[in-house]
Amino acid sequence: MKTKFKTILIALAGLFLVFAIVVFSKYFTNNTKNVSKELYVEIPTGSNYNKVLEIISPYLTNINDFKFIASICSYDKHINPGRFLFKKGLSSFGLVSTLKRNMPVNLTFNNQERLENLCVRISSQIEPDTTKLLSVFRDSLFLKQNGFTRDNVIAMFIPNSYEFYWNVSAEKFRDKMLKEYQNFWTLERLMKAKKLGLSPVEVMTLASIVNKETVKKDERPKVAKVYLNRLALGMPLQADPTIIYAVKLRDNDFDQIIKRVLYGDLNINSPYNTYVNIGLPPGPIAMPDITAIDAVLTPDSNDYIYFCASVERFGYHEFASTYEQHQVNAKKYSDWLNVLGTKR
């Protein structure tokens, strides 16, 4: 009797071992395909189980094995939206575990000229689309409560890298950007702006011009001071980058490349024409980086009123305190452009 019972136990153990091997081979070995090394899979907000299967099926060797494990782990009843990292060689169990771990996005943006361009850039990195982002940034109540307008709300965005979950809502994204803006404007920066007689938005607006005028970070405090000198004298800023912005805005074409401002452009009817209008334009003409912002807040000490591109030090400018000297510098630059054949 004992021998027979022992035989039954051995047989059952053997069957269990065979079952365990089958289960392991089906559910704990590679169930991926079309994954060279790793890739991110995005599950939209509101997705049901069938939608998830539709999204991930191109990357599964055996979808039924996945569905079996998903059912055991109750994943089919608890779907998580977000961005998930699929790695080559993941088993069905590993895939289900992966779909429970939402991976953050390291979101970056800079150098955007308009809110529209910025929203396109952002929407390529998180779930909310361009239309939704524009809507929340231009919400009239939000603008009024935080001292922005449709023309200057882009001043709220400090170019940097930020961590978000892919499925963050447009409202939460906007509120996080507002908080980052408020944190950036420390008491020290606010006091510097007040000393200049400028609001934070006005600093950002002037910094956007400085940012466009020169890529040389060591020259930005000097350029900033020139514009501050002009503001103090009640002179027009006469900033070519604002004319370029006005032309692009008029043409509704921000992809065009304008290397040379023509005399005819200086009469363009636009609030961004700083040759005609006194003071700052309605808002930033691009997103200034932090070096340009701090250049405005901590400008150079000089009495320069004029500057133009240098033909001897590429990327830098020649500065002048008198119009006569500026005319000499400007003619050199104009002659140089003519030699190059640059018409626009």
Rank of each mutant, 00 (worst) to 15 (best):
Y272S: 07
Y275G: 12
A286D: 15
I293G: 10
Y306W: 10
Y263P: 14
F307M: 13
N277M: 07
F307W: 02
K259C: 11
T274R: 06
I268H: 05
Y272G: 11
G279Q: 01
P281F: 11
Y306L: 07
K259L: 15
P299M: 01
D300F: 03
P299F: 00
K259Y: 15
S301Y: 03
P299D: 07
N277Y: 13
V276H: 12
V276M: 08
D300I: 01
A295P: 06
S270L: 11
V276W: 06
A309L: 09
I257T: 13
V276C: 05
D300K: 00
V296R: 06
L297D: 07
D303R: 10
I258W: 02
I258G: 07
F307E: 01
D300N: 12
A295M: 00
P288L: 06
I290D: 12
L280T: 04
S301P: 02
P282W: 03
L297R: 12
N277G: 03
I258S: 05
D289R: 03
D265A: 00
N267E: 15
I285E: 08
G264T: 05
D300S: 11
V276Y: 10
P281I: 11
N273L: 06
N269V: 13
N277I: 07
N302M: 09
N302I: 03
P281W: 04
A295Y: 00
N273M: 03
D294T: 08
A286Y: 00
P284Y: 01
N267V: 13
M287A: 09
N273I: 02
L266W: 03
P299Y: 02
Y306K: 06
I257C: 03
D294F: 05
D294K: 12
M287I: 13
I258K: 06
D303Q: 13
N302C: 14
T274W: 14
D303T: 14
L262D: 05
T298R: 09
D289V: 10
D265Y: 10
V296S: 05
D303M: 04
N273T: 07
I290N: 10
S270C: 02
S301A: 14
D300R: 00
F307H: 00
D265G: 03
G279K: 06
I293Y: 12
Y306N: 11
S270P: 08
T291M: 11
T274F: 07
P281Y: 06
A295I: 00
D294N: 15
A309Q: 01
G264P: 02
D300E: 12
S270Q: 08
